[in-house]
Each structure stands twice: as C-alpha cells, then as structure tokens.
Simulated scan of single mutants.
Amino acid sequence: MNSNKIEHFVSVYQNLNKDNLALLKDIYHHDVVFIDPMHKVDGIKDLEQYFSHLYSNVQSITFNIDESIEIADKGFLYWTMIYCHPYLNGGKPINVTGHSRLTFKNGLVIFHQDYVDTNAMIFEYIPVIGRLIKHLKKRASK
C-alpha cells in the first residue's frame, strides 16, 4: 500500500460488516457514485442501503487486497473476494478476483467502480444456469 488514503480505505473496508455500516461515511464522500456490474448507486445513503442488503444476503464476505496503486487522486485495488451465500455453491466459499477504480475528493472516495466477472461471482453457481455457462465456455475454448 502506498498512501494513507488507500490504507485507510482498505482498513475500513476489510472491517465492514452488517453491524457497522456507518463506517462507510469515514471513507465515502456524501455524493459518492458506486458502480459494479449489476448496480449503480448515487449518494452515501443509497450506498449504505446497498451494503445493508448485500450483507444481509451473505453468510460471510471478505476481501483480500492483492495489490494497490495510487496516483494523485486516483486509486486502483486488485482483490480477491471470498464469500458464502446460502443459495450458491451449497453455501461453500466462492473466490472471485476483481479490481476497483477509485477517485478521491478531500480524502474520501467520490467515485468507486468495481470490475468483476459476474459469471464467476454468481451465475456459475446457480444449478441450471451454471451448467449452461460451463458448457458454453468449454465449447468456446475448442
């Protein structure tokens, strides 16, 4: 880690859980825009609701930070997410790699975009859809 902004962000993020989502205000600007492959969230209140919903639907979730880069007001995180969801993969851990692009304003994240393969994160673990995706991947690699 190469900056206090990134270090602080990662430290808070790795300690988040359903009981301490108020900590989001310590790392996100009130006008934050948060984008992942399935959602776009505007503002800290909506982000808190999004995280509340996320944490209520998983049994556990952790992020291992593999690498971080900071250049001026931009930050880039490369991570592995490990989560357990009661309806995916029989509740067993799922590992997914991804990365995040952050923009800071006054030391807080005002823009956060996650890049992650949603097939590897969700769809491959839904019984019928997962088999279809695996079949298509196998055919495409021939």
Score class of each variant (00 low, 15 high):
residue 1 M to S: 15
residue 1 M to T: 06
residue 6 I to T: 12
residue 6 I to G: 01
residue 8 H to S: 06
residue 9 F to P: 00
residue 10 V to N: 12
residue 12 V to K: 11
residue 12 V to R: 10
residue 13 Y to E: 15
residue 13 Y to Q: 15
residue 17 N to Y: 09
residue 18 K to C: 05
residue 19 D to Q: 14
residue 21 L to C: 00
residue 27 I to Q: 06
residue 31 D to R: 11
residue 31 D to N: 14
residue 32 V to M: 00
residue 33 V to H: 02
residue 33 V to I: 14
residue 34 F to M: 02
residue 35 I to D: 03
residue 37 P to R: 00
residue 38 M to T: 09
residue 39 H to G: 01
residue 39 H to Y: 08
residue 43 G to Q: 00
residue 45 K to D: 09
residue 47 L to D: 04
residue 47 L to R: 01
residue 48 E to G: 02
residue 48 E to S: 07
residue 48 E to N: 05
residue 50 Y to C: 05
residue 51 F to E: 10
residue 52 S to N: 13
residue 52 S to Y: 09
residue 53 H to A: 10
residue 53 H to E: 12
residue 53 H to N: 13
residue 56 S to F: 07
residue 57 N to M: 10
residue 61 I to A: 12
residue 61 I to Q: 15
residue 64 N to S: 11
residue 66 D to I: 14
residue 68 S to H: 13
residue 69 I to C: 14
residue 70 E to N: 11
residue 72 A to V: 04
residue 73 D to Y: 09
residue 77 L to P: 08
residue 78 Y to I: 11
residue 78 Y to H: 07
residue 79 W to P: 07
residue 80 T to D: 06
residue 81 M to L: 13
residue 85 H to M: 09
residue 88 L to S: 06
residue 90 G to M: 05
residue 95 N to V: 01
residue 95 N to E: 13
residue 97 T to K: 15
residue 99 H to Y: 08
residue 100 S to I: 02
residue 101 R to V: 13
residue 104 F to L: 06
residue 105 K to D: 11
residue 107 G to M: 01
residue 108 L to G: 03
residue 109 V to N: 05
residue 109 V to P: 03
residue 109 V to L: 06
residue 110 I to T: 11
residue 114 D to Y: 02
residue 115 Y to K: 03
residue 116 V to R: 03
residue 118 T to M: 15
residue 118 T to F: 10
residue 119 N to M: 03
residue 119 N to K: 10
residue 120 A to N: 13
residue 124 E to Y: 04
residue 125 Y to Q: 14
residue 125 Y to D: 07
residue 127 P to Y: 10
residue 128 V to I: 12
residue 130 G to S: 04
residue 132 L to A: 14
residue 138 K to N: 10
residue 141 S to N: 10
residue 142 K to I: 06
residue 142 K to N: 10
